[in-house]
Amino acid sequence: METPYPGLEFGPAELAAVMRGIYDELIEFATTPAFQSMYFELMSLPTKDRFAFVLDVVLSPEERRRRGVEPPDGILIQTSAFGDRRPTLFVIKKFLPQRYHTAWENLNITFDNHYDDKSVSRDPGMAWRPPLPVALQGAVMSGGVDLDSLPNDIGVGSALFELPEIRSVEP
């Protein structure tokens, strides 16, 4: 039996095995021809039209079914927003069993609009900003506006936390 993490009931090998299984499930789904076809349909659109497609098709069980995209039990298709404000579109995600939530909670594969890596800041203060509400982020992306132009204090729960210092506003 392996040595558990301090204060937890499981160790790295057990957690890694569970994660491996979940990633394999996500990979299996992401590589189905139906999912791939829907994804490339999304990415064939102009960037400003992609978030609307996510709302209308990727998040719609009816539209997915029409395209033969049937997520297995436990795999969720969601939208999200990052503190670093990379222009993300949607995510396929699966929760780990509750037992492991004291360490990690979910694994996912995330699909972004393409961006120049240098344009998204790696400053910890930028990366750990409260994320924008997703609907707002999507509207801003669709409008072709720079996500970094929005103030930091409108992020989700920004009234709750002391906001990190940003060392540099440059990406």
């Binding site: 994660m19 990633y23 992401a30 590589t31 791939q36 994804y39 990415m43 990052f82 995510v91 396929i92 995600k93 939530h101 004291t102 360490a103 990690w104 909670e105 979910n106 694994l107 996912n108 594969i109 995330t110 699909f111 972004d112 750990w128």
Partner: peptide, 22 residues
Amino acid sequence: GCHCGGGTLPGIGGTACGGAGY
């Protein structure tokens, strides 16, 4: 929090992430 890496995943275009551990 979310930890994302792997760049663009070959053949599918997404990025692998371990999300919101807590």
